[in-house]
């Protein structure tokens, strides 16, 4: 049985994706939530790379993956900056305590 197939890559990335979703929803720590987002982006990049290898025309998928990685880095920088601002106000980074705005 062939193991290194498109399907196995897809399933690995699916697991990464869903773990990411789960992490986003279940963690209380903002950084934890952010890790979930990183997992999702990582899984998308993996998906693109595997499609590029197995079903694509050329390397466009890999280019997309590179851009996803770059965007993830940019987003991380913004996230860190905002995190510091939130931390200063709330003295903690519990997402549940972000509840001034509601209703």
């Amino acid at each position: 049985m062939e193991i290194i197939t498109l399907q196995s890559f897809l399933i690995v990335s699916l697991i990464l994706f869903l773990t990411g979703l789960y992490t986003i929803v279940s963690r209380k720590n903002i950084i934890g939530i952010y890790m979930g987002i990183e997992l999702i982006l990582n899984s998308s990049a993996l998906n693109f790379a595997s499609f590029s290898r197995f079903a694509g025309r050329g390397l466009e998928g890999q280019v997309f993956s590179i851009f996803i990685i770059v965007l993830a880095a940019a987003e991380a920088a913004v996230a860190l900056a905002l995190l510091l601002a939130v931390f200063k106000r709330q003295r903690g980074i519990d997402a549940d305590k972000l509840n001034i705005l509601k209703g």
Binding site: I24, V25, R27, I33, D94, A95, D96, L98, N99, K102
Partner: peptide
């Protein structure tokens, strides 16, 4: 439990 609104939002999405 105290509801974390943000994640409840994401939950709705998911």
């Amino acid at each position: 439990a105290q509801t974390g609104r943000l994640q409840a939002y994401v939950m709705l999405l998911i």
